[in-house]
Amino acid sequence: MAAMRRGLLHVLAWLLATGAAVTVTWWGVHTVMAGTAYDPPRALPITAADARDPDATAPPVTATARPQPSESSGAPARGADEPSPAPSKPPGSTKPSPGPSTGAPADAGKVRAYDTEGGRVVLSLGEDYATLVSATPGPGWSMQVWKTESWIRVDFAAGADRVSVFCTWHDSAPRVDVQNF
């Protein structure tokens, strides 16, 4: 009976030690992963200017950008700088109609895309913050993202080649640096 009790005591001690080890390991991994998790990227439409000349510097895409009507639709084409006409409301309607949904927050900053050899990074840049909109690695490249309260870093890697897009806004407006290693 004493041998059985001793064996049971050993199993209980082993279970407690294993449970403590698993708990400490889970807490450590959870703490590290909570600091690196980010929202899934949202896709932005590719404009005709992007498709024609990918090396040209495109004007920033705004959260309210809308596609222009095609020539075949019968509607006259507007210039890119002309405002859209206001939608007509039925008579007697006092409730404003909601604007188009872009998936971006209402206070989104200027959306800028950075095309690199390793891939494309799209950031929303406010006056004193930045948000990662999307990051897409090019064919054959891998990607890693780090985010904190004052900077975002996206690294692309393929073999020995490295490209880093680093955005910081600690004591100033957001600054973006692209570096090839």
Rank of each mutant, 00 (worst) to 15 (best):
A49P: 00
D161I: 07
L44T: 15
H30I: 09
A130Y: 09
H30R: 09
P59K: 02
P91M: 12
W169N: 04
A2W: 07
P83L: 14
T47N: 01
L132R: 10
D177V: 13
P90G: 13
G19M: 11
V24K: 03
D171V: 04
P69K: 11
P85A: 15
A48G: 08
D107A: 13
A130R: 03
W146N: 13
K110P: 10
D39Q: 00
R120H: 05
G159L: 10
R5L: 15
A80Q: 00
R162F: 03
G28A: 08
G35Q: 13
A86T: 13
A51Y: 05
V145S: 03
P41L: 13
E127Y: 06
P69H: 15
S72M: 04
D115C: 10
D39P: 00
W27C: 07
V24A: 11
L125R: 05
W151S: 10
V61G: 01
T148I: 00
G92H: 06
F166Y: 09
L44N: 09
G103C: 07
D107G: 05
P76W: 14
A17R: 12
M4C: 06
H170T: 06
V178E: 00
V61R: 05
A21Y: 02
P139G: 08
A34C: 05
P41T: 10
R162D: 02
M4N: 15
A56C: 07
P85N: 12
D50K: 08
S134E: 02
P98E: 04
T47R: 06
L123F: 08
Q68H: 02
L16Y: 02
S134Y: 03
R162W: 04
P100F: 14
D177N: 15
A20S: 11
R78T: 03
D50N: 12
T25Q: 14
S88Y: 11
K95Q: 05
A106D: 02
R66W: 00
S124Y: 01
V133R: 03
R112T: 15
G138V: 12
D53N: 15
F156H: 13
A106S: 05
R6W: 11
P54H: 08
